[in-house]
Nucleic acid binder design. Structure first.
Length: 495
RNA sequence: GGGUCGUUAGCUCAGCUGGUAGAGCAGCUGACUCUUAAUCAGCGGGCCACAGGUUCGAUCCCUGUACGACCCA
């Protein structure tokens, strides 16, 4: 049995009272309403005299979130989304029957209202109700009016209550939606075609991550939820699309944290004939466009830090970043023993089988990443870490790749694509060696992808932008769970 | 996986040295036709997350479990 408290019991009784009055507690269509937000916007600064003169009437609907009764009159706040408008019930105006209905209303109920717009003595925009239409009965009490709902677990598990109780949550998710719409129009305006590639992959690829496994019964085949769309999008470039993007969910079977949710949203886009420098310029530009559209300017505040998106952003090579953030000399990048000593010096625990690349990357993550507050492109990643990236012409141990860091977090990853099928095969084979050595995040070898490359992929640059982290940055949220409507939690224990 | 902290009424929170629980809001009854955290009078509401242990006695001390938050790997 569910938590059957006395308030719920009371409301179940009121449901019967409504039925007794001939009022359906779960009504049907209520057409022709104006959004409360629109009404408030339209008349928020209109004077009482002007409202009287214009005889402004309206039809609105919403949830009752505050109620103040005075014998033969009452005030209520109607909420729709993040917006509220006060309504006023008078026995004189409503008549006995409708006033009796208004007396049965509870916090949380949905009603529709026809009335005239005026200002109260205290100058609050208010609708005096002429006709009251009952729309839907709330059986559970809402959280407290002053503190709202603060219990973080309940906020995530019952986001619907969070949204009712905390209007600022609406703002975060509206901003999320506008950022995504902004990215879509930015890319489509520049000739990128939005495509949909499989979510279920026979071979998980395109990233270093553990996949979720599922099974298709009719095909008698294991399938993997995609960890990245990359290899499919590049197949499309092989097929002749010049510019494509996909903006959708990826799934990675890894731990949860303030910056990791097992399903998360990624934008990936690919541009033929371009290189990673073009993408860095595009990234600087699109962040500015979004910041202006959504935040009204190109400086943001994130968790108390001022973030300045004015281009050009700093560009720093991966190795130089490590050397300039530590006091080590170049040997630590080239000699495994020196690297291990340096890493130990930084307080890092190095597992026995760790490769030079792995140790150096641990140093990067520890000594460099957290300090990259202002937008910074880290470039020229080692080829060992970048099995899908084109090698740098002047030094084939490096790649034409960048990652973007802001506020100490990776926001984007882009590179000139490796389009040499023979080199790609060797890189996959190196990954297979790592996998055999116990690295279960190493890339799997995808023969069909290699076959596609053998048909010839033009020079191409591609990039992924982590949308959840982007939204965190633009809405100043500390946890990824605050920018995902229904973040992953353990299943609720039975009560 | 490890550490720290948390879980008390529908919600937000108190609860001292171990003696079977309090407030505000919400709810119920009554008064009130311009209030806005309305006001006034009265009333009800608890598996103190769960399971063990210590104790004459546990919301409180101990152990474990579940769920969550943060930090670390």
């Amino acid at each position: 049995m569910d938590d059957l408290n006395d308030q719920r019991t009371q409301r179940l009784q009121k449901l019967e009272t409504l039925r007794g009055m001939g009022v359906p507690p779960y009504g049907a269509r209520f057409e022709g309403t104006q959004p409360i937000a629109r009404l408030v916007e339209a008349y928020g600064s209109t004077s009482q005299d002007e409202l009287t003169h214009q005889r402004v009437t309206c039809r609105i609907a919403g949830r009752i979130v505050a109620l103040r009764r005075f014998g033969k009159a009452a005030f209520a706040s109607l909420q729709e989304g993040a917006h509220r408008l006060q309504v006023y019930f008078r026995k004189d105006t409503l008549g006995d029957e409708a006033f009796r209905l208004s007396q049965t209303l509870d916090l949380g109920d949905w009603i529709g209202v026809d009335g005239s717009v005026f200002r109260t003595k205290t100058d609050e925009l208010t609708v005096e109700v002429q006709t009251l239409t009952f729309l839907s009965k709330g059986l559970r009490p809402l959280p407290e009016k002053w503190h709202g709902l603060t219990d973080i677990e309940t906020r995530y598990r019952q986001r619907y209550v969070d949204l009712v109780s905390n209007p600022s949550v609406h703002h975060v998710f509206e901003t999320r939606s506008r950022l995504i719409a902004g990215l879509r129009s930015y890319l489509t305006d520049r000739g990128f075609l939005e495509v949909e590639t499989p979510m279920m992959h026979p071979i998980p690829g395109g990233a270093a991550a553990r996949p979720f496994t599922t099974h298709h019964h009719a095909l008698h085949a294991d399938l993997y939820l995609r960890i990245a769309p990359e290899l499919y999008l590049k197949r499309l470039i092989v097929g002749g699309f010049r510019r494509v993007f996909e903006l959708n969910r990826n799934f990675r079977n890894e731990g949860l944290s303030t910056i990791h949710n097992p399903e998360f949203t990624m934008l990936e886009f690919y541009q033929a004939y371009a290189d990673y420098h073009d993408l860095m310029a595009l990234t600087e530009d699109v962040f500015q466009v979004l910041a202006r559209e959504v935040c009204g300017g190109i400086t943001l505040t994130y968790q108390g830090q001022r973030i300045d998106l004015t281009p050009p952003w700093r560009r720093l090579s991966y190795f130089d970043a490590i050397l300039s953030s530590t006091s080590f000399d170049r040997r630590v990048l080239e000699d495994r023993a020196a690297a291990e000593a340096a890493a130990t010096d930084l307080g890092l625990a190095i597992p026995p089988g760790a490769t030079l690349t792995g140790i150096v990357n641990a140093m990067f993550e520890h000594a460099v990443e957290p300090h990259l507050t202002q937008p910074t492109f880290i470039t020229e990643y080692p080829a060992d870490l970048s099995p899908l990236s084109r090698r740098t012409d002047s030094d084939p141990r490096l790649t034409d790749r960048f990652e973007l860091f802001i506020a100490g977090r990776e926001l984007a990853n882009g590179f000139s694509e490796l389009n040499d099928p023979l080199d790609q095969r060797r890189r996959f084979e190196a990954q297979a060696t790592q996998r055999a050595a116990g690295d279960d995040e190493a890339h799997a070898l995808d023969e069909d992808f290699l076959r596609a490359l053998e048909y010839g992929m033009p020079p191409t640059a591609g990039e992924g932008i982590g949308i959840d982290r982007l939204v965190m940055l633009f809405t100043d949220q500390a946890s990824i769970r605050d920018v995902i409507l229904f973040p992953q939690l353990r299943p609720e224990p039975p009560s």
